[in-house]
């Protein structure tokens, strides 16, 4: 063995977690809600998710090939983006919209800013907003579960006229995007991610808590506000995106609270029925500043000028 000793710098051991492993955990956590969406919304839901995932992976693949960059589809981050985008699609939307959304997510929001880790807003979220402002009618007409007829609006839009029961909302038997309906299964996924230490519970807890609390204080139904609409999916899976959320504990708290406040303000005072996407995007933009504001000081830090005392 004398001649074939390998030499490497310390540390000589590494933790087994990898980028790919983390992405895989996110996919696993989303599976229950995804399968549930497939069951209640039928084959169109399956196709939406499949097209989004495939299109996102293809965009990432082609971008790397054309720009002669190392291939990065193996890290599964594009698959996660595709999955989340697919889950945000209303079942009745035409399929070509998925492709536009995927190109927007991977090429425009992610790769043009430098690829994984360099995008300043969440790619799936950015793409959803692009679709929302470009094709508002497609993006806001949702399908009734099981019967698959087109309904006019989600329960959040119906709150004042024809509210749906908490039980229906919690388990997800109501109209909505493919993966946002079952609060229960999204929570299960969130608990899995917390248990696996992939995400910290701070952002989801602050986000959901503040949205419910403010709605209640304003005289609304706090529980209804978090069970209907996209709060669960957004708070657990999109607001916790590593790249676009703060890294410090206090930063995470500020981020979650900010998301909750903006969601509430848009829903309460804005003309839109839903505010989760905009709330997350706005807080994404503030993330670098939150990080600076809450930066940790070195252990035993002494200010330059004080050293001589």
């Amino acid at each position: 063995m004398q001649n074939k000793l390998s030499v490497s710098t310390s540390p000589h051991i590494r933790h087994f977690d990898t980028t790919r492993g983390i992405m895989l955990d996110v996919i696993i956590a989303l599976l229950p809600a995804t399968v549930f969406g497939f069951v209640i919304f039928g084959w169109r839901a399956v196709l939406h998710v499949a097209i989004c995932v495939a299109a996102c992976l293809l965009c990432e693949f082609l971008w790397n090939v054309i720009l002669k960059k190392p291939q990065s589809i193996g890290d599964l981050s594009a698959a996660v983006t595709g999955l989340i985008l697919g889950l945000n699609m209303p079942t009745g939307a035409p399929f070509w919209i998925d492709i536009i959304g995927s190109v927007a997510a991977i090429i425009v929001v992610k790769q043009m800013f430098g690829g994984l880790g360099h995008n300043f807003i969440n790619p799936a979220m950015g793409a959803r907003i692009i679709l929302l402002v470009s094709f508002p009618s497609f993006m806001t007409s949702f399908t009734e579960p099981l019967v698959h007829t087109v309904s006019s609006a989600t329960p959040i839009a119906l709150e004042s006229t024809a509210p749906v029961s908490y039980k229906t909302l919690f388990f997800g038997m109501h109209p909505g995007a493919v993966g946002e309906v079952s609060a229960f299964l999204l929570l299960v996924g969130g608990l899995y991610l917390v248990a696996r230490k992939v995400i910290s519970p701070i952002i989801p807890v602050c986000f959901i808590g503040v949205t419910a609390g403010l709605t209640y204080i304003a005289g609304g139904d706090g529980l209804y506000a978090i069970l209907s609409g996209g709060v669960m999916l957004g708070a657990i899976f999109m607001a916790t995106d590593y790249v676009t959320s703060p890294t410090t504990k206090w930063g995470k708290a500020i981020f979650g609270i900010g998301c909750g406040i903006i969601t509430f303000v848009i829903r309460q005072f804005g003309s839109l029925p839903e505010g989760v996407s905009y709330a997350i995007i706005l807080m994404n933009i503030l993330t670098p500043h939150i990080n600076t504001l809450t930066a940790q000081k070195p252990f035993g830090y002494v200010k330059e000028g004080k050293k001589d005392e």
Binding site: T18, T19, R20, S72, G117, T247, K297, P298, F299
Partner: peptide
């Protein structure tokens, strides 16, 4: 396999010198 940094913040949380 080295990938891009995904800004998980684990290095900063692990650093004993903060």
């Amino acid at each position: 396999t080295t990938t891009n940094c995904i800004r998980c913040g684990r290095c900063a949380a692990a650093c004993p010198m903060h």
